[in-house]
Amino acid sequence: MSVSSSLQPRRYPDPAALLRLIKPVTWFPPVWAYLCGVVASSASPLSAWPLVILGMILAGPVVCGMSQAANDWCDRHVDAINEPDRPIPSGRVPGRWGLWVALAMSVLALGLGSALGPWGFGATCLGVIAAWAYSAEPVRLKRSGVWGPGLVGLSYETLPWFTGAAVLSAGAPSPQVILIALLYGIGAHGIMTLNDFKALEGDRQTGVNSLPVTLGPERAARVACIVMTLPQLAVIAALALWDLPVHAAAIASLLVGQAWAMRVMLRDPRAKAPWYNGTGVLFYVSGMMIAAVALRGL
């Protein structure tokens, strides 16, 4: 009696599963941050549009996509508990294909990064190192509810913002640009904490000490809101100090909108955290671009 081919494991990955592996939905934050850096620089984006396009591709599909593939490979045992339909635990990306994809994209990232000059290449190296340090043993900073989300926030927001400004200006960004990029990267720690809610059970069973695991959903949600709010208050204060009151007021109004969304989310953090990441975060990233426009005017 022959075994049905549908029951035999795949030898090659499903193309749709490969696309899901690199998660296009996650590409927006680093691409947006890179564009914020471009806007905040003193150079005209039109005068260097190939670098703008290349940087967007590198920040989103390549480096961020690589980090997602690496995370899925290193988290395949956790995903088997939380989301067994994900590409690797479901078998649609079989064997070591997930690892090979992550490694190949790491090499591709370094190759493309070299075309962005020394600042762009250096930032790409940091991004690749951060991606593997977050997910892979023996470092696996993802195990920490403090260092893991902090590294992701800085990698998704601060690093691409810095890179966009450095590549366009062909030099180190101004201290003001670095400060604002750093503040938004720190605030993104809270966004990453809310993102950890979806993996709560698997993290608890596999020893990943995310804040929702160590503090509980309610306290972790409150900490996330505080961490998101304080850096934005610092951005508002900095812009006001630099005589940019209109931009400071605009970001303050967006922060009010976030406060409303936070109140809704805090009523039921486990259920509402995904909702907040689709609503309140829009206010957050809108404030980033307003800050970038303000910095350009300095």
Rank of each mutant, 00 (worst) to 15 (best):
L154Y: 07
L215Y: 14
P245A: 01
A181C: 13
L108P: 05
G113T: 03
V31A: 11
C64Y: 00
F162V: 13
G148W: 02
V3Q: 10
I290H: 02
A221V: 11
A69I: 13
A220T: 14
A172T: 15
R11N: 12
V107N: 03
Y12Q: 09
A115E: 07
G65V: 10
D14R: 12
Q232S: 08
P29S: 01
V78T: 11
A181H: 11
L35D: 05
A249D: 05
G287C: 09
G287K: 03
G111S: 10
I290Q: 08
C225D: 11
G202P: 07
A166L: 07
A172I: 14
L254A: 08
L154G: 06
H189L: 14
C74T: 03
R86N: 04
V128P: 07
V246S: 08
A123R: 00
V213P: 11
L282W: 12
K198A: 08
S286D: 00
W27P: 10
S174C: 01
T279F: 15
C36D: 09
P231D: 06
R76Q: 14
F121I: 00
F162T: 02
W27K: 09
P45W: 11
R86C: 03
I57N: 07
R296Q: 13
L168Y: 02
S253Y: 14
G280W: 10
A250Q: 11
G127Y: 05
P274L: 11
N195A: 06
L21I: 12
Y134E: 06
P160E: 00
L141Q: 09
V31T: 08
A59N: 01
L230K: 00
D85K: 12
L200C: 10
K142C: 08
A252Q: 08
A109V: 05
